[in-house]
Write a protein that binds this DNA or RNA. Structure first.
Lengths: 112, 112
DNA sequence: ACCATGTACCTTGTAAAGCAAGGTATGTGT
DNA sequence: ACACATACCTTGCTTTACAAGGTACATGGT
């Protein structure tokens, strides 16, 4: 139900996961799913976008137990992008929290 | 450019602003604009949604210097919704920050 | 009288993103 | 032969933010 909140953050999350080491889409779903909900239908189009932006590059690796895996590596530009996104993310969180602070003093003790 | 990040948070922000006191759409744009970017084209449809969900109710007030203002008040359900949204927001921020933490140890010192 | 400006409301169409549902193919175990 | 896990992918839907445009009232300047 918090689908909307994720908009715009998943790119950053995937880049962050890739900063910890190369991975492939199917595995990334598993990795991120430990912390947050994300589905394959989200991941595959997302990876295409990241590649279109040249934030990641790919290489194929045969698997001993299944079809080949399409690994993704962060590019230098991807690393820069991650850094930028994290900055924007922190700014945004601060902005929202500041607005939430508006409500802090109000309505809590409504006894006349 | 961080349009996507806002998805899902603006409802909450508006409800929070209304928790600090009744207001009308045009004024809310001004209030929130002190902290974050938001446009009228976003606000008016948003207010309709809030009302459709019964999180706010409205009343008209004539203005001395312009057309009548459509004031919005938080309903009891709106207050509950705000509380719920804030909880989800905090959870979500924690989740994202946890994922960003994955990258913390990697790639920072890439010597050898 | 006329017009610009500020206030205040609103709608339409576009773009982006997440997701459920479905589909394909490979390898392993029964 | 069949089921299952792995691993890839696409289509169509939904929600949301926003730019652009439109209406109407009140005030001040010329």
């Amino acid at each position: 139900m918090k689908t909307q909140l994720k908009k715009g953050t998943l790119d950053m999350c995937v880049l962050a996961a890739l900063a910890a080491g190369d991975s492939y889409a199917y595995e990334l779903v598993g990795i991120l799913s430990r912390t947050m909900e994300i589905s394959e239908g989200t991941m595959y189009p997302l990876m295409r976008r990241l590649q279109a932006e040249a934030w990641v590059s790919t290489y194929l690796v045969e698997s001993a137990s299944g079809p080949s895996r399409k690994y993704y590596t962060l590019t230098a530009e991807g690393r820069r992008q991650l850094s930028w996104m994290q900055q924007e993310w922190r700014e945004f969180v601060n902005e929202v929290n500041a607005v939430l602070g508006l409500a802090a003093g109000a309505g809590t003790g409504e006894a006349s």
